[in-house]
Design a protein around this nucleic acid. Structure first.
Lengths: 340, 340
DNA sequence: TTGAAAGCGGTACCAT
DNA sequence: ATGGTACCGCTTTCAA
């Protein structure tokens, strides 16, 4: 087999015209054969000649030219600011991508960190995606939504803690997480609950609704809620542990398992007993929670499977123009262990 | 016909011809103005009319049409099988993307999980990227590399534990990690070293070279190396702890901090003292290692900053055809704490 | 059964 | 200072 493009700098990229020439047919025939167009009946010998020519030349069709002619793409754009964190979310995206590819969409993640809201929307629109799934934290304004629709996007979908006006929404309602944690603490008799608010900016879209979820559950029960700022380092945790008794709290929802572990260690080093003096509950159900002593109570989360959501997106693309739909993806359940 | 107020379903996408018509100029002029083409001198009133028309129509240029005409793209393709794990790698990719965007490249991640090697390469080639950065675990065969080059890619770059023949390589040599761990254990007098090999498939591309790194350092020192299969669950860890004394080892490199923590807990539950009976070292320098008792020794890794690598890629694109270059990105250093 | 040709949305050369 | 127009690669009528 003659391979190896020794002149990668100046070997021309083969086009369907090259294939046609080599096979001794017209470009139209090449297109019919390679796309298995059933409306045209092409003889078997011709088909073979075309396929062989394509293979010999290493021909790959030009996606831009194709979609330009077609007047539309099958690209689903998934803008990413900071890449997603956590195995749960990663797995979900994985499934969603696989599902969409199974429906013959091309899934493309487009790094948009550092772009302004409208700037980003225009950059996305240049690619003429048929659908956009924009995660939380990426700006999606009314203007941006309009630009995307005008550029031919059939479905504009947000993916995050709460839906955005004018777009469809895949909702991961973090309030549910806080709510489950609070319910669990209330059941165990705690009424003076601290809620860790990480100082790290990236957590804000999650931390704020989790706090709101705690409040929503705790208020009717007459519990006291106290916000506790905490950076993810040992010194800050030690500081909080030192202030703990003065705070007059009996329990804490630590935002997630990692902050919970940090805090629990600080409590133990400060001689504050868990759960007697401070009940601690995290979230995420990480393996490490089971390895701690006492074993960490947590809120386990599960996301909807990606496959049905791929079908949902497909439906929104095929029947655009309906009212914005919102779908809740997140399920949360408290996992009681020994730290509460 | 039920026309919705927004009528998003049938509003035609505005083109440069629409802008030209509205502004009362030709399409050429529109192009000159919107691209700030300096070779053409366009009067200020005309410029303003064009810009206003574009804004009023919500005009966004069509990237596919542009690159079709230009004959090339400025797209850097970053195929992803499973999305990247770990804050280190995430941060690195983030930087790389930002750097490339600063050099006016469009960075696109293309989900390729579940595609065969050649299938994937053809799918990438359809997009006519100017460069491809393929992470480890994604098939990149000689055929695939050839296809990409023939489709116009100026630089094909692998990103992983070892370079691939015929492509440039950004190398994250995991052997260094194992080597540092082994050196540290040897320095502390250990000569019978277990090496955890996670049963989870996704870790293989990392675990195997790490083991090799351990061997390379330990062999000249006459140390004994034993592979220890371990799944990431408590039961399996307990089993390994139960066998520990029979194994006759004095120390273990636990693949990373998470497996190290799992194993350390199992040792402690089985009454095996760390580090006296079993020295444990992990890797990744996660915060949680500092929270354990004894504090976990680890191997800290650092990746090269993304900005210079973006410039490297830019150079490879602008001067293609050179010999494949390999650049080592990973730096590793042992962090001694109390578990060894 | 196959081929000729129009046209998708931009850009850039050549006239005017 | 602007406009006319050929062309990038591909698909898809319409004719032959």
């Amino acid at each position: 087999m003659s391979q190896l493009p020794k002149q990668p700098s100046e070997s021309p990229v083969p086009t369907s015209a090259d294939v046609a020439r080599l096979a001794g047919v017209s470009r139209a025939t090449v297109s019919y054969v390679l796309n298995n167009n059933p409306t045209m009946r092409i003889s078997e010998p011709t088909r073979r000649r075309v396929r062989e020519a394509a293979r010999d030349l290493g021909y790959v069709p030009h996606a831009a030219a194709r979609s330009l002619r077609a007047g539309h793409t099958r690209m689903v754009l998934l803008p990413t600011g900071h890449l997603p964190e956590g195995p749960l979310y990663r797995h979900f995206l994985q499934e969603l991508q696989a599902g969409l590819r199974g429906l013959d969409y091309t899934v493309v993640q487009y790094g948009s960190a550092g772009l302004g809201a409208d700037e980003a929307a225009r950059a996305w629109a240049e690619l003429r995606p048929v659908a956009v799934v924009a995660p939380a934290g990426l700006a999606l304004t009314a203007y941006g939504i309009a630009v995307l629709h005008r550029s031919g996007a059939k479905a504009v979908i947000t993916l995050g803690p709460h839906p955005v006006e004018g777009a469809h929404g895949l909702v991961l309602d973090q309030r549910e997480v806080g709510g489950r944690a609070a319910s669990h603490l209330l059941e165990r008799g705690h009424r003076r609950i601290g809620v860790v608010m990480p100082r790290e900016r990236a957590t804000v879209p999650f931390a704020v609704p989790r706090l709101e979820g705690v409040r929503r559950v705790a208020r009717p029960a007459g519990a006291r809620i106290e916000e506790l700022d905490l950076a993810y380092d040992e010194a800050d945790a030690a500081g909080l542990a030192a202030r703990w008794r003065a705070l007059g709290l009996d329990s804490v929802f630590a935002y997630n398992d990692e902050y919970a572990m940090l805090l629990m260690r600080a409590f133990q080093d400060a001689g504050i007993s868990v759960p007697a003096e401070a009940a601690v509950i995290g979230a995420d159900d990480l393996m490490l929670g089971r390895l701690l002593r006492p074993r960490l109570s947590t809120v386990r989360m599960a996301l909807a499977t990606g496959q049905p959501l791929a079908e949902l997106i497909d439906r929104l693309v095929q029947h655009p123009g309906g009212e914005p739909e919102h779908h809740e993806l997140l399920r949360a359940v408290a996992v009681p262990r020994d730290s509460t």
